[in-house]
Design a protein around this nucleic acid. Sequence first.
DNA 1: CGGGATCCCCCTTGATACTG
DNA 2: CAGTATCAAGGGGGATCCCG
Lengths: 133, 133
Amino acid sequence: MLDQIETAAIYIQRWNAASGESGPCPVRDVLDKIGDKWSMLLVMTLAGGPKRFNELHREVPDISQKMLTQTLRDLQRDGLVSRQVFDTKPPSVEYRLTDLGHSLIVPFGHLIEWANRSIGQIGAARQVFDGKI
Amino acid sequence: MLDQIETAAIYIQRWNAASGESGPCPVRDVLDKIGDKWSMLLVMTLAGGPKRFNELHREVPDISQKMLTQTLRDLQRDGLVSRQVFDTKPPSVEYRLTDLGHSLIVPFGHLIEWANRSIGQIGAARQVFDGKI
DNA sequence: CGGGATCCCCCTTGATACTG
DNA sequence: CAGTATCAAGGGGGATCCCG
């Protein structure tokens, strides 16, 4: 377990050392999407099962149509989400997590857990920091 | 294990439903920093032990001085990093992870692992997607 | 219903120069 | 050494209108 963590840290450091020659770090490329404003929110929302476009829009009210479309396309491009069109009238489109998408839920869930556990400490630390400026 | 993941998913969904009344989601607030361009890179770099300002700058060559300063201040504000000034000449300042900062390494390491494992599949998915445009 | 296309703002990031 | 100050640029993201 700890070995893997160290491996990750060493991977990052090694990439830093070699930076500039090999282009952007692929891990950072992937992680950028994690931190993107909507990607992970949609993945977690789709974790409950496949959903249609407006269904997603209803469950994530504060996303704009544009960003919903764009984020879903990016997720589909990365192979995390699959898109199925039903030729009904009016047309309906269903989005669901792929196996790869599902596999992200576990490590990402750990992070959410950590965030949940740590919100209190972080908030306290911020108050202390902001108080003594 | 899976319970916790589901808990996380449900947490997100419940917050979506209540959004607008309670302000920004605290978990998303925390996760924003995770995905921030430099925060996690610095945390993983500091995972190897405490480092001085220019030492960090050397190990992460493509960060600007400004962003290094700013990111370190944010990390310190959130209680993930502590800052110790030594009154020598010339002055030296040492940054190190707090206990809270260390506790982030594990869940974040899982994510890096996932990214490492999945880079191949994601790259392949992108080629397929881009090929059939 | 499920999007596309367009306009535009603002915030983050980078480059550069200066300081205790 | 360890920052601060200022200016400029780019793109992420919202609002709006339109379409099959």
